[in-house]
Computed example of a mutant assay.
Amino acid sequence: MKGRPPSWNPFAGLYPHTWTEVIEFGSKGRLGMPAAVRRRLTWFESATAQGLLATLEPNGRAKLDAWEDHGNEVVQLVRKAIDAASSGKSDMALAALDRYLHISVEDNGRLVAPSNMVSHLDPTGTGKARVVVRDDELWLWSEIKWEAERKDRLALLHRQ
């Protein structure tokens, strides 16, 4: 991993492909991706040109992937599914609109999140979300959901 780990987290270097911290929504739904996040993702810097595919999960999470690698493929799969459907085409289109988003990435690593993604991740308006990096995957979590599962994660430390 390039760069030094943040001094506030003495465990940042234990498993360099994992990271989490709270980030705040800025004006117009902007989310600044911390340098610690960008350093851990081999694909993030190249994703700024075409942006990201956000897949909203029903549990207050969103998985982010490079658009170039995943976005066009998802669009084609959804298009084929809608074209092949004998009924419910508008319902399928609404489901796709509700689940998949194209996210812009500014040169400084800030994401520009659409309002429906902000609402999904921050349903109570705290202005915060949780960024999670695991083995080259990038996730955004509702901070409420993250806190609700904290007890289970902490129990992992005591099982060893």
Rank of each mutant, 00 (worst) to 15 (best):
M1R: 12
G3R: 05
R4I: 05
P5M: 07
P5C: 12
P6T: 08
P6C: 11
S7I: 08
W8G: 13
N9A: 08
P10K: 12
A12M: 04
G13T: 08
L14E: 10
L14I: 09
Y15L: 10
P16W: 02
T18Y: 07
W19T: 06
W19E: 06
W19H: 14
I23G: 02
E24G: 07
S27E: 13
R30D: 12
R30Q: 14
R30C: 11
G32C: 07
P34Q: 12
P34T: 04
V37G: 05
R38M: 10
R38A: 11
R39E: 14
R40H: 09
T42P: 15
T42E: 15
T42G: 15
W43F: 15
W43L: 13
F44L: 15
E45R: 14
E45M: 07
S46N: 15
T48C: 10
T48I: 14
A49D: 15
L52Q: 02
L53P: 09
A54Y: 00
L56G: 00
E57Y: 00
E57H: 01
E57F: 02
P58I: 01
G60L: 02
G60H: 00
R61N: 00
A62M: 01
K63V: 04
K63A: 09
L64Y: 03
L64G: 04
E68Q: 15
E68G: 10
D69K: 14
H70G: 02
H70M: 14
G71L: 10
N72H: 11
N72I: 07
E73H: 13
E73K: 13
V75C: 09
V75K: 11
V75W: 10
Q76H: 13
L77R: 11
R79E: 12
A84W: 06
A85G: 11
S86G: 14
K89S: 14
S90A: 15
D91H: 13
D91G: 13
D91N: 15
D91R: 15
M92W: 08
L94I: 07
A95G: 09
A95F: 06
A95L: 13
L97E: 13
D98K: 08
R99L: 00
R99Q: 12
H102K: 13
S104I: 00
S104D: 12
G109P: 01
G109L: 03
G109D: 02
R110G: 02
R110Q: 09
L111C: 03
V112W: 00
M117V: 10
M117S: 03
S119A: 12
H120P: 02
L121D: 02
L121W: 00
P123S: 01
P123I: 05
T124A: 06
T124L: 09
T126E: 04
T126D: 02
G127L: 06
G127F: 05
K128Y: 04
A129L: 01
A129K: 00
A129N: 00
R130D: 00
V131R: 03
V131M: 03
V133F: 03
R134C: 04
E137M: 09
L138A: 04
L138I: 05
L138Y: 04
W139H: 09
W139F: 12
W141H: 08
W141D: 02
I144S: 03
K145C: 11
K145F: 11
W146F: 07
A148I: 03
A148N: 03
E149A: 08
E149Q: 13
E149I: 08
K151A: 14
K151W: 04
L154A: 06
L154R: 11
L154F: 10
L154S: 09
L156G: 02
H158G: 09
H158D: 14
H158A: 10
R159N: 08
Q160M: 10
